[in-house]
Amino acid sequence: MSDIAAPKLLRAPASQRAFAGTPWRRAVILAGFALIWELYARWLDNPLLLPTMGATLSALWSAILSGELPDRTLTSLRVLTTGYAIGVAVAAILTTLAALSRWGNEALGLLTSMFNPLPAIALLPVALLWFGVGTPSLIFVIVHSVLWPVALACHGGFLAVPPTLRMAGRNLGLSGGRFVVEILVPAAFPQILSGLRIGWAFAWRTLIAAELVFGVSARSGGLGWFIYTSRAQLETASVFAGLLTVILIGLVVEGVIFRTLTRLTVQRWGQEQA
């Protein structure tokens, strides 16, 4: 067959390229929020209820310098990533089984509808009974909070893979685990990615809440414990500094890790539902 010529590409004008992305809009919105916060806090003039942004930032800075905040953050992140990894791994195993067998499918459907609505925090008492006060209990509730939403998203994604694509894969003789890993997973990646996002948010939330609940007796607590002790000592600025840290980490994970992952995968593959 005769060659189809490659299309000619033009470079977009510089003025268009400079404003193409969204970061500058986000920066403007953030600056707006900061301004409102600062003004309202000054007007309220009650540092016990609402510290100014300046006070919060300086509390944040000194907590960082003293090494306490980085320490607490690391503790939290370590527990978080461990629980997250275990949750995602278990979800992967469950959804693979569900994709390959009817029994697995039924089992996953039943388990997710039973456990997904159950708030992770509600399992904390049970976790404390089983694992005692400490990291294993935290990891247990995080796994619970990650596992079900991720499994649900993966499973939904697998079911939505177009039949033609499935047949194209099976045509090559693919079956079993290889079919799941090499066809279903990438084909369902948009849904899997959003499941991972939701799972991450749930895990973060659950961790901070769990640390707040039983941080009282934990010696080496995480960020939740930092927030809890700061409140007990009526250092509201430090409470806000702790919250700000939680938000910042969330922003970094969302804005850097997940955004990059999206750009490298579903956007490049033209699979992003715009």
Binding site: P162, T164, L165, M167, A168, G169, R170, N171, L172, G173, I183, P186, A187, F189, T265, W269, G270, Q271
Partner: peptide
């Protein structure tokens, strides 16, 4: 009894290619 590469199907639908592989990647992977 089962699908296999000794019978390659070209489908009508455009979504028979793996979207996460390039043109070359699709054929090479097959």
């Amino acid at each position: 009894v089962a699908p296999g590469p000794d019978r390659m199907t070209v489908f009508q639908e455009f979504d028979q290619l793996l979207p996460w592989r390039t043109v070359l990647g699709n054929v090479r992977y097959a």
